[in-house]
């Protein structure tokens, strides 16, 4: 049985051994390969950038196919006259679509997930802003407002007078609270006793401080409040002064404060 098996192995080996390309065929194949290689080199040097890019795309698809199908192989030494080898990689024969399609699908999926996540974040942020503004304007006392009121009560209990800002904007917190501590932020709408209306807002948001050296004579007294303050609500007393170097703008100073803020007539 063993002899028979060995005989079969020997016959198979000899059969393979008998297959050999003729010398002429070898030279023909080599010449073709060298010609193709030379042409490829020339083509690579002479082609325009656009064509080269297209080729790169094709080549990268092929490379991708080869890369993904590389297989790691290890093998032993020699067996008789047959040679074993240590192989580390071998090219696969998987279709490029097997790689490209799942890859493309994965990229699309990632893009969709990123977009959806971003949209939901924006929505939640927008929801938060909406909720914040609605809480500010709505009459019913929200839970946050109640907490702020409790804090204010505690502050009063400690003998500290809550500032206008704190009482006006209980929802503000952290960095925002530091920014809105100024009266001018909360009460930018100024009404003088003669009915003249001014605003301390510039471009809707920013407020400029005015150097006291630029402040001239008193224009009038009045009160300041928020633009959306209900009619009849008592505002913060203030004084409005002319500027020595500007005719279209004025300086307002809120009661109890020393800082002058730039203000302009409300058109």
């Amino acid at each position: 049985m063993a002899d028979e098996r060995e005989l079969l192995e020997q016959r198979i080996h000899d059969a393979y051994e008998s297959v050999e390309p003729s010398a002429e065929a070898q030279e023909r194949m080599l010449a073709n390969l060298l010609a193709v290689k030379g042409r490829a080199r020339q083509t690579g040097e002479g082609q325009t950038q656009a064509v080269a890019t297209a080729e790169d795309t094709d080549a990268s698809a092929t490379r991708q196919r080869e890369k993904t199908s590389l297989r790691r192989v290890s093998a032993g030494g020699q067996t008789g006259r047959r040679h074993a080898a240590k192989v580390t990689v071998a090219p696969g024969r998987r279709s490029p679509w097997r790689v490209v399609l799942p890859l493309a699908a994965m990229l699309v999926l990632v893009a969709v997930v990123v977009r959806v996540t971003g949209a939901s974040r924006n929505e939640s942020r927008a929801d938060g802003i909406m909720a914040q503004s609605s809480e500010k304007s709505s009459e019913p006392v929200s839970e946050d407002t109640a907490v702020a009121d409790e804090l204010a009560a505690e502050t009063n209990a400690m003998g500290v007078e809550p500032s206008i800002t704190e009482s006006a904007d209980p929802d503000a917190g952290g960095e925002e609270s530091a920014a809105v501590e100024r009266t001018v932020d909360v009460c930018p709408s100024i009404t003088l006793e003669d009915g003249t209306r001014l605003t301390a807002l510039r471009d809707g948001v920013s407020i400029d401080e005015v150097d006291s050296e630029r402040v001239g004579e008193l224009l009038g007294r009045g009160s300041a409040a928020a633009f959306d303050a209900p009619d009849g609500e008592a505002g913060v007393p203030c004084e409005v002064f002319r500027l020595v170097d500007e005719t279209d703008a004025y300086a307002v100073r809120y009661e109890g404060e020393e800082t002058f803020w730039r203000c302009t007539p409300l058109v």
């Binding site: 192995e9 297989r71 192989v73 093998a75 067996t79 047959r82 074993a84 071998a90």
Partner: peptide
Amino acid sequence: YYEGYKTGEIAEML
């Protein structure tokens, strides 16, 4: 039969 690889080696190669 011709190159003399063992089964395990062929499995890894392919």
